[in-house]
Amino acid sequence: MAVEARLRVTDLAAGYGSNLVLHGVSLHVGESEIVSLLGANGSGKSTVLNTISGFLRPREGRIELDGRSISGMPPHKSFRHGVVQVSQARDLFGDLTVEENLKLGCIVHGDEGLGLEQAFAYFPRLADRRDQRVSTMSGGEQQMVALGRALMSQPRILLLDEPSGGLSPVFVEEIGNIMRRMKGDGVTMLLVEQNMRLALEISDRYLILRDGKVIGGGATGELSGSHDDIVRAIYL
């Protein structure tokens, strides 16, 4: 019997034009669980997230949130069901301020969401810069705004695409701390991350994606100190 899951993806096939990228991906994420998708560039990690959030239509397969199908829903509909993505490019509103960006995160919920002060509790650095235009901020600070904007709608599941990508070690550490806090608060996450140390430390489980297929995975708690087997599975 299937385990009750917050998100369940079954036999998902998706791609761009005639190029099929995902070939029958199946995964699930339980409530308050964090699952990392690991894989080399081009393995289909971001495609999985884009298909779940509705930017790509699945060719085959099924996506369910709390047992209800959200397959093929456009992004605004999957968002209303609680699927919120933080994209690799962040896609922030650069000419707007930090506060305006955060408020837009819950605009479709009638501005009823996490609340600005609660968001700033996650990101104290942003509280001092609430009136600063986002385009003038560093990459790490912009990543915090992107995470904050996503949290504003109190998502049922957060899809994070390379949250530490392109950041300095200091900001990687800071983003890591924020994600640990989110984990402590029970935020359900499906995480795509190249920083394997960070991903495996934060996550409850991991899955290895290769050429659009899940080829392995397991509980991060069962891993020994060395991640050589995972690296070999990803790249060799």
Binding site: V86, D91, F93, G94, D95, S153
Partner: peptide
């Protein structure tokens, strides 16, 4: 207005607007 804030957001980035649940189309 809320309508105006949404349009302002779409002017910045349509994908970003979709990411916060706006029906861009």
């Amino acid at each position: 207005t809320r309508f105006g804030r949404i349009v302002q957001a779409m002017f910045q980035t349509q994908r970003g607007a979709a990411l916060v649940g706006i029906n861009v189309r």
